[in-house]
């Protein structure tokens, strides 16, 4: 349905099956597991604990410190996120060099905008994801991403904060992690294609060799499972 809604440049990834790619991640294989100590020299200084709860909390704290122009905190955020952002950006067939350029732009943006980061509103990984995504659209697609402006007088603000939003961000993140770890392999595969390769649904169907209806139902089911786990009754 959205064939023309996607960027044709982003549509080629050699048809590889992401779900089978060994580079994929801590959710794969036998469920949630701790990352093995990284062998990458550049990331030795990364946060050593990969308990998702702890990592999320400490990343949020670090990002707040980056907002105060704390260079040690920035280095720690870089060590953790730069190699992950590179993997994320290479997901759509972008060359490693190009991916690093976008990582660089993303990190510079993080440095400059971290004082606007609000740990009560979003996990560090969420905030960084949105910046990297926007830089990717900017840089690789040379396109605008229209967004609402909360300072616009026509903007309808959120109603009274919902009770669930009082849950600490770290707890949210841990719940989300657990929810995603419980997804089936099929469901994770469609989500990864959607997020990492900028694939719209018809292309996901092509890449996985399954009908469009199946893609839609898997995505719907994946999101429903995640919602039910993070206690959102919607």
């Amino acid at each position: 349905m959205f064939e023309t809604a996607i960027n044709s440049n982003a549509a080629t990834f050699g048809g590889s099956m992401v779900g089978k790619d060994p580079k994929w991640d801590r959710f794969d294989a036998d469920g949630p597991k701790r990352n093995p100590a990284t062998t990458n020299v550049k990331t030795e200084r990364a946060v050593t604990s990969v308990d998702p709860d702890q990592t999320s909390k400490s990343m949020s704290d670090l990002l707040v410190r980056v907002g105060d122009q704390d260079q040690d905190a920035f280095r720690a955020v870089f060590d953790y996120f730069a190699p992950r952002l590179k993997a994320f950006l290479m997901g759509q067939g972008t060359s490693p060099q190009m991916a690093e350029e976008v990582v660089q732009e993303t990190m510079v943006k993080i440095w400059r905008k971290a004082d606007q980061y609000d740990p009560a509103r979003a996990a560090a990984s969420t905030w960084i994801f949105t910046i990297a995504r926007n830089m990717r659209i900017d840089h690789l697609r040379k396109s605008n991403r229209p967004e609402p402006d909360m300072n616009d007088p026509a903007f309808i603000p959120d109603p009274e904060p919902l009770a669930t939003e009082a849950i600490s961000q770290a707890q949210d993140s841990a719940q989300l992690y657990a929810a995603m770890a419980e997804l089936s392999e099929d469901q994770r595969a469609v989500l990864k294609l959607a997020y990492f390769e900028e694939k719209a649904h018809p292309e996901i169907a092509d890449a996985l060799g399954i009908p469009l209806g199946t893609v839609k139902s898997r995505i719907r089911l994946a999101l429903k499972n995640i919602r039910s786990r993070i206690g959102d009754s919607e």
Binding site: K42, P83, R84, M180
Partner: peptide
């Protein structure tokens, strides 16, 4: 947030 979780969970690629 799902996107952020996926980025956190990906196997890092050395820079």
């Amino acid at each position: 947030a799902v996107g952020g979780e996926l980025v956190s969970a990906v196997a890092p690629v050395p820079v």
